[in-house]
Design a protein around this nucleic acid. Structure first.
Lengths: 212, 212
DNA sequence: TAGATTGTTAATCGATTAACAATC
DNA sequence: TAGATTGTTAATCGATTAACAATC
């Protein structure tokens, strides 16, 4: 196993590997090869092997990869077995959509509760998820160990809310506000979900006739 | 202007340039340089100039870039002035969150109406957006020119719904289902928004101590 | 054993960075 | 004009692909 600075491209492909392996599992397939995975991914077999060997030796020469074992290995690399905990910050439409629809546990994340400033939303709320007052968030974070904040607050309070979370030593922010959160002195990890960037890129590919 | 196969990396940076330029505009700044933009983007001035010169000559030597003109040029490259039209397909929580919260017009997209199979949702519905019966979608698409389908249906009907849209000659699918839509013989453009991929990548960066 | 496929090194390709002439 | 900054070519760096020895 070698582990020196794995490229972002490789990391971003891992969740897709996971999806493809899950497909193979659901088809009852036990063993696969870099060639099969390459076809599923639209990549070369070389790339598959290069990606995987960043993290260890998961295959068997002359045979291929055990589908379930490889799936678990990748899930482990992605920290899905670390028991990460999360809170939802801001229960607007995006927050509610995530609480109702998104299966955090499939990503190995335990969503504990939600916070909002709106008194009307407080109490046992959405999809069995308790909504608490934003006023109590510091106290809560000092007592309960939370790794990830899912940030779904309005634009205008995005930066101040992020600062509050960082003050309370949150490790990572999954950012659904359309703001680039800057992290002045902190080493908080930020993952952005920028809907509008995505739609704009789509607009480019429609205009240009590259097809991609 | 040279236009030979612009890299995906460059395209994905354009919406961020747009955001940074909007910030400069809101600060009343008229003119900027590749150095300033590089600092805002966390990139090198070289990269900024390389990216921009893919699409034309937007700057003035010895001076820099006119902020508003550059903003409009990038918006044009992203097809934001093409008057793209869209429909929302599937009015679950994600669909509703987009209809309520997401400003399509800021991306230059005109969201015309929504479709759902649930009779209870049909009628003038969410945020002034008309919800129509899914049964009428083919007829609608044959009459009204729609470029983009925003696909928010449940997983189990994602592929069949995409097929229906492709049959009806939709140009692009903005895909919020957690399925990799494959496009067998069609040249439809697909842009995926995979929440779980994003959260899993975050999990990796939390586990590893790369910080990034 | 023979055939197959990995893990890994080497070669190629593309993207980023550096350098600088052009020019405002 | 002199100073500044672009547009663009050249150099470097990193990622992808190809090749192949190791080995199951």
């Amino acid at each position: 196993m070698k582990n020196k600075s794995i490229s972002e491209n490789t990391i971003r492909r891992l969740p897709r590997y996971l999806r493809k392996l899950d497909e193979l599992i659901s088809l009852g397939i036990i063993c696969t090869t870099s060639r099969v995975l390459a076809d599923l991914m639209g990549a070369t077999a070389s790339q598959i092997r290069q990606d995987l060997c960043c993290f260890g030796e998961f295959g068997l020469q002359g045979y291929g990869y055990d589908v379930k074992a490889l799936r678990e290995s990748i899930a482990h690399v992605l920290g899905m077995d670390k028991g990460h905990t999360a809170i939802l910050v801001g229960v607007g439409n995006v927050g509610r959509a995530l609480a109702d629809n998104f299966c955090f546990s499939l990503c190995g994340v335990d969503l504990k509760c939600a916070f909002d400033t709106d008194e009307k939303k407080i109490g046992i709320g959405i999809n069995g998820l308790e909504v608490r007052s934003m006023d109590t968030i510091s106290e809560y974070l000092s007592k309960i160990n939370i790794d990830i904040a899912v940030l779904c607050v309005p634009r205008n309070v995005a930066i101040s809310t992020a600062a509050l979370l960082i003050e309370n030593s949150i490790e990572a922010i999954w950012n659904f506000t359309n703001i680039d959160l800057v992290k002045p002195h902190s080493d908080v990890i930020v993952e952005n979900v920028h809907f509008s960037d995505s739609l704009m890129s789509l607009g480019y590919y429609m205009s240009s006739d590259t097809g991609r």
